[in-house]
Lab assay of single mutants.
Amino acid sequence: TKKDTKLYCICKTPYDESKFYIGCDRCQNWYHGRCVGILQSEAELIDEYVCPQCQST
């Protein structure tokens, strides 16, 4: 049987260590910077990140 692979981001793909991720400070989920429109250089300046799903609630 195929091992359950945890899926990340709004694009629902397995973790890829070569890509940049940003963690939501509300739901603790991880998102590709590219998918949520945040560059790694911008993320370093953000104190708290809230993902699109949490922003809409």
Results as ranks from 00 to 15, higher is better:
Pro52Ile: 10
Gln28Gly: 12
Arg26Met: 07
Tyr15Ser: 03
Tyr49Ala: 04
Thr57Gly: 08
Ile10Ala: 03
Tyr21Leu: 06
Thr5Cys: 13
Pro14Cys: 05
Asp25Met: 12
Ile38Phe: 07
Cys54Pro: 03
Lys12Tyr: 09
Glu44His: 13
Ser41Lys: 13
Gly37Arg: 07
Ile22Arg: 04
Trp30Asp: 10
Glu48Leu: 09
Leu39Asn: 15
Glu17Ile: 08
Tyr21Gly: 04
Val36Thr: 03
Trp30Gln: 15
Ala43Asp: 04
Lys3Ala: 09
Gly37Val: 02
Ser41Leu: 07
Thr57Gln: 04
Thr1Lys: 07
Arg34Val: 15
Asp4Lys: 13
Phe20Val: 04
Asp16Ser: 05
Thr1Arg: 06
Arg34Trp: 05
Gly33Phe: 07
Thr5Gly: 08
Asn29Val: 11
Leu45Tyr: 08
Glu42Leu: 04
Lys6Ile: 11
Lys3Arg: 09
Gly33Val: 10
Cys11Ile: 00
Ser18Ala: 07
Thr57Arg: 10
Gly33Glu: 04
Tyr15Ala: 05
Lys19Asn: 15
Lys6Asn: 12
Tyr8Pro: 05
Ala43Thr: 09
Lys3Pro: 06
Thr1Ala: 03
His32Asn: 01
Arg34Asp: 15
Asp47Ile: 06
Gly37Tyr: 04
Cys24Gln: 00
Val50Met: 08
Glu42Lys: 11
Glu17Pro: 08
Lys19Pro: 03
Thr5Ala: 07
Ile46Cys: 04
Cys35Pro: 02
Cys24Leu: 01
Cys54Asn: 01
Asp16Ala: 04
Glu17Met: 09
Gln28Ser: 14
Ile22Ala: 03
Ser56Asn: 15
Ala43Gly: 12
Tyr31Gln: 02
Gly23Glu: 08
Val36Arg: 02
Ala43Met: 09
Gln28Phe: 07
Lys3Trp: 03
Ser18Pro: 02
Cys11Met: 01
Ser18Asn: 07
Gly37Lys: 13
Glu42Met: 05
Asp25Asn: 13
Pro14Ala: 14
Gly23Cys: 13
Cys9Trp: 00
Asp16Phe: 02
Gln55Glu: 14
Glu44Gly: 13
Cys51Phe: 01
Cys35Lys: 01
Cys54Leu: 02
Cys11Lys: 01
Thr1Asn: 14
Pro52Val: 13
Gln53Glu: 13
Tyr21Arg: 08
Lys19Glu: 15
Cys35Gln: 01
Gln40Asn: 05
Cys51Gly: 02
Arg26Leu: 11
Asp4Glu: 13
Gly33Tyr: 14
Asn29Met: 10
Lys19Tyr: 05
Thr57Asp: 09
Ile10Tyr: 06
Tyr8Phe: 12
Tyr15Gln: 02
Cys51Tyr: 00
Gln28Glu: 11
Gln40Glu: 12
Gln55Gly: 07
Cys9Leu: 01
Thr13Gln: 09
Gly23Met: 13
Pro52Thr: 11
Gln53Pro: 12
Tyr8Thr: 12
Trp30Met: 14
Phe20Glu: 13
Arg26Lys: 08
Phe20Ile: 06
Leu7Pro: 11
Gln40His: 13
Tyr21Lys: 07
Ser41Ile: 03
Asp25Thr: 15
Thr1Asp: 11
Ser56Phe: 11
Arg34Met: 06
Ala43Leu: 09
Lys6Arg: 10
Tyr49His: 03
Cys51Ser: 03
Leu39Ala: 05
Lys19His: 14
Ile10Cys: 06
Asp4His: 07
Arg34Gly: 14
Thr5Met: 14
Tyr49Ile: 03
Glu44Lys: 13
Asp47Phe: 07
Ile38Ala: 04
Gln55Leu: 08
Gly23Tyr: 12
Ile38Pro: 04
Val36Leu: 09
Ile46Tyr: 05
Asp16Arg: 03
Cys54Met: 02
Glu48Tyr: 09
Cys27Met: 01
Thr57Cys: 13
Lys3Leu: 10
Tyr21Glu: 06
Cys51Leu: 01
Tyr21His: 07
Ser18Lys: 06
Gln55Pro: 10
Thr57Ile: 10
Cys35Ile: 02
Tyr21Asp: 14
Cys9Thr: 01
Tyr49Met: 04
Cys27Thr: 01
Asp4Pro: 10
Phe20Leu: 07
Tyr31Asn: 03
Gly23Ala: 10
Ile46Thr: 13
Cys27His: 00
Tyr15Val: 06
Ile22Lys: 03
Thr1His: 06
Ser56Gln: 12
Cys24Val: 01
Lys19Val: 10
Ser18Arg: 06
His32Thr: 00
Tyr8Ser: 13
Tyr15Asn: 03
Gln53Arg: 11
Glu48Met: 08
Cys9Val: 00
Cys54Ile: 00
Phe20Cys: 05
Leu45Trp: 07
Cys24Phe: 02
Arg34Glu: 13
Glu42Phe: 06
Cys54Asp: 01
Tyr15His: 10
Ile10His: 11
Leu39Val: 05
Ser56Ala: 14
Ser41Pro: 10
Tyr8Leu: 12
Cys24Thr: 00
Lys19Leu: 11
Thr5Glu: 15
Thr1Trp: 08
Ala43Cys: 14
Asp25Cys: 09
Cys54Phe: 00
Lys3Val: 13
Cys51Gln: 00
Glu17Ala: 12
Cys51Pro: 00
Gln40Thr: 09
Cys27Pro: 00
Cys35His: 02
Glu44Met: 10
Lys12Val: 01
Cys9Met: 00
Ile22His: 02
Ile46Gln: 11
Gly33Lys: 06
Cys24Pro: 03
Thr57Tyr: 05
Val50Leu: 14
Thr1Met: 09
Tyr49Trp: 12
Val50Asp: 06
Lys6Glu: 12
Gln53Phe: 06
Lys12Ser: 09
Gln28Val: 06
Pro14Ser: 08
Phe20His: 10
Cys54Ser: 01
Asp4Ser: 13
Thr57Trp: 06
His32Cys: 02
Tyr21Val: 07
Pro52Gln: 12
Gln28Asp: 11
Tyr15Gly: 03
Ile10Glu: 09
Thr13Ile: 04
Asp16Cys: 04
Glu48Asp: 07
Asp47Val: 09
Ile46Ser: 10
Cys9Lys: 02
Ser56Tyr: 07
Ile46Val: 11
Thr5Val: 05
Asp4Gly: 08
Tyr49Arg: 04
Cys27Ser: 01
Glu44Leu: 10
Trp30Asn: 08
Arg34Pro: 09
Glu42Ala: 10
Glu17Tyr: 05
Tyr31His: 03
Lys3Cys: 02
Ile22Trp: 03
Cys11Ser: 00
Tyr15Thr: 05
Asn29Thr: 07
Gln55Ala: 12
Lys3Gly: 09
Thr13Ser: 09
Trp30Thr: 15
Pro52Glu: 14
Ser41Ala: 09
Leu45Ser: 11
Tyr31Ser: 02
Asn29Phe: 05
Glu17Leu: 08
Ser18Trp: 02
Gly23Lys: 09
Cys35Phe: 00
Cys11His: 00
Arg34Ser: 14
Gly23Asp: 10
Ser41Tyr: 09
Tyr31Phe: 14
Glu42Ser: 07
Cys27Gly: 02
Asn29Pro: 01
Glu42Val: 06
Tyr31Leu: 06
Ile46Glu: 06
Cys27Lys: 01
Val50Cys: 06
Gly37Ala: 06
Asp4Met: 10
Cys24Trp: 00
Tyr49Val: 04
Gly33Met: 04
Thr1Cys: 14
Tyr21Ala: 14
Cys9Ser: 01
Lys3Phe: 12
Gly37Cys: 04
Ala43Ser: 09
Gln55His: 08
Lys12Ala: 05
Ile38Arg: 06
Cys54Trp: 02
Ser56Lys: 12
Ile46Arg: 12
Gly23Phe: 09
Asn29Asp: 12
Gly33Leu: 15
Val36Asn: 04
Gln40Cys: 09
Glu17His: 08
Asn29Ser: 12
Cys27Ile: 00
Arg26Cys: 14
Glu48Ala: 13
Cys11Asn: 01
Thr57Pro: 12
Cys35Val: 00
Ile22Met: 06
Leu7Met: 10
Glu42Pro: 05
Tyr49Thr: 04
Asp25Ser: 15
Leu7Trp: 09
Cys11Ala: 00
Lys6Gly: 11
Tyr31Ala: 02
Tyr21Met: 15
Gln28Ile: 05
Asp25Ile: 09
Cys11Asp: 02
Gln55Asn: 10
Pro52Lys: 15
Cys24Glu: 02
Asp4Gln: 09
His32Trp: 00
Glu42Gln: 13
Cys35Glu: 01
Cys35Gly: 00
Lys12Cys: 10
Asp16Met: 07
Tyr8Glu: 15
Cys9Tyr: 00
